[in-house]
Amino acid sequence: MTTTYAALLRGINVGGKKKVPMAELRALLESLGHGAVRTHLQSGQAVFTSGHGDEESLAAEVTGAVERRFGFAVDVIVRDHAYLRSVVDACPFPAAELEPRQLHVTYFSAPVDEERFAGVDRSAHLPEEFRLGDRALYLYAPDGLGRSKLAEQLARPRVNKGVVATTRNWNTVTKLVELTAP
């Protein structure tokens, strides 16, 4: 049985660094034996089918292959359609009422708990706010991610210590659900 996955590559093609052409990424995933490979945007989303492995082993496989091919390390999170759909369904904010640039999801490689964010003064950043989900953090940033002071706090190494974290805007979050649908 094959499963459709999304691979989320962290920090590629940003500011001219860690360049990974999407055509080459597709070819790389195909060379690993994955099928129905597609990419979305230039910022590190690939969708593929696989009949072997699990999310963690597939992420390690893609991470290793990218490093061998492009010569630099890239963190990768792999998630299946059911998980991606559950993230959308569990959104604690009124996504339909917001502009997609106002809502973001940070995917984590492992579960995180509230204690990790104890040092973040939530009231100092209002009306921005965040809520935790299943290996995900939902961020409401009414002025967008680029102007978000809360996003800066949430991206600090001490907050993300020991986990891979990568953020996508709501348009990308919902597009990945669509692209991985059976």
Rank of each mutant, 00 (worst) to 15 (best):
residue 17 K to A: 13
residue 104 H to C: 09
residue 28 L to H: 08
residue 73 A to R: 15
residue 142 P to A: 01
residue 126 L to V: 12
residue 18 K to A: 13
residue 127 P to G: 08
residue 36 A to H: 12
residue 31 S to C: 05
residue 93 F to K: 01
residue 21 P to C: 06
residue 19 K to M: 12
residue 95 A to C: 05
residue 18 K to Q: 13
residue 120 V to C: 08
residue 131 R to W: 10
residue 128 E to D: 13
residue 159 V to W: 01
residue 86 S to T: 09
residue 125 H to Q: 13
residue 94 P to M: 07
residue 95 A to S: 10
residue 136 A to N: 10
residue 181 A to T: 08
residue 142 P to G: 07
residue 99 E to Q: 14
residue 145 L to H: 14
residue 92 P to H: 12
residue 87 V to D: 06
residue 89 D to A: 11
residue 95 A to G: 04
residue 86 S to L: 00
residue 154 L to G: 10
residue 78 V to F: 08
residue 56 E to C: 09
residue 7 A to Q: 05
residue 122 R to N: 13
residue 88 V to Y: 07
residue 58 L to R: 01
residue 105 V to G: 08
residue 55 E to W: 02
residue 79 R to D: 04
residue 179 L to G: 04
residue 8 L to E: 04
residue 4 T to W: 13
residue 164 V to T: 15
residue 10 R to Q: 03
residue 90 A to P: 06
residue 150 L to S: 13
residue 78 V to R: 01
residue 153 Q to Y: 06
residue 109 S to Y: 10
residue 147 R to K: 15
residue 86 S to I: 06
residue 67 E to I: 00
residue 109 S to T: 07
residue 176 L to V: 02
residue 57 S to N: 14
residue 144 G to L: 09
residue 52 H to A: 15
residue 17 K to N: 14
residue 27 A to T: 07
residue 34 H to E: 08
residue 47 V to D: 11
residue 120 V to M: 07
residue 13 N to T: 01
residue 91 C to V: 04
residue 58 L to Y: 02
residue 176 L to H: 09
residue 121 D to H: 03
residue 70 F to K: 00
residue 70 F to N: 01
residue 146 G to Q: 04
residue 115 E to W: 14
residue 141 A to N: 07
residue 164 V to A: 05
residue 106 T to D: 10
residue 51 G to K: 03
residue 15 G to N: 06
residue 87 V to C: 05
residue 92 P to L: 10
residue 143 D to K: 11
residue 41 L to F: 00
residue 180 T to C: 04
residue 71 G to M: 00
residue 142 P to W: 03
residue 29 L to W: 04
residue 135 R to C: 13
residue 155 A to C: 11
residue 18 K to I: 07
residue 125 H to C: 10
residue 29 L to I: 01
